[in-house]
Amino acid sequence: MKKTIFPIITILAIVLLIFLPYFIGAYLLHVLMTIFIYMTLALSWDMMLRTGQLSFGVAGFFGVGAYASIITCSRFGFNPLVSILFAGFFVALIALGLGFAVLKLRDIYFSITTLAITMVFSVIIRNIPKLTGGASGKVIPNVIFNGDSAKTYWLILSLALITILISEMFNRTKIHFAINSIRNDEIIARSSGINIFGYLLFVFIISSALQGIAGAIYTQQYGFVSPETTFSLDFLLLPMAMALVGGIYSTWGSVIGALVLGFASEYLKLIMPYGHLIIYGIMIVLIILFLPKGIYGTTKDKIITHKIEKKSLSE
């Protein structure tokens, strides 16, 4: 029974999400698009975290993807959709090259290096103004699908669903055991025959490529890039907060975190024009303090505990 209900609910939810543009207005659609972009970033950040590596390079790969897309579009006449795919491929290539250097590092050294990489990307972009527009950035005359909200929504929804699918594949295949083992104890993982570097590199490339594609779609949606906004640390800190609030090391944690924080941010702003950011910040701190495993992790734990108690009582 359980095995059939879950796929049915999933399919129904996907169908509902696909047909949503026919029922809701442009504003809510816009809010959802932003949430899905951040959801993709949160999930891809969490995928890397599952290997035990805390990456601060999200904004960097997001920004490079954005620039790759807008430059190929404006200078080489790429179709926007092709430019988005190219951006993903380009970021994956960069991640492959960088991976050989940074994935030898661990803990805080890895984190700081990935943060530094974001800064380096930003400095490089600023210093090749003929290609990138330098400090003032670059604009394209037309945004993707000529600003058609529904089509843009479907594109962003596809990216979010693909990311969820990849994340679930990571959780349901042997990759899950390998990366869990690497996170828990690398020596045991190595002695079990796990190719640590290979798995780390694979996850790093996949998560970076997703971040690059998210950046490319975001920039095609708004039609501009600039070092300050495109490499903004918002694209690192907010996805991290979303994953932490929802619950790390899981697909649904990031999904729940993105939905909760995304809608809360919009709703708070409307009911409290002044001071809503303070309430938003306090909310994040309280959730992380009192639900250290996040909303999903804590709820899941409670359900499991309840089931065990129920089982032991019946026995």
Binding site: G25, A26, Y27, V31, T34, Y222, T229, E266
Partner: peptide
């Protein structure tokens, strides 16, 4: 930027 764009959508449609 995303919040600013969403604000215009809200003002126009809601």
């Amino acid at each position: 930027p995303a919040k600013g764009a969403a604000a215009i959508e809200r003002l126009a449609t809601v």
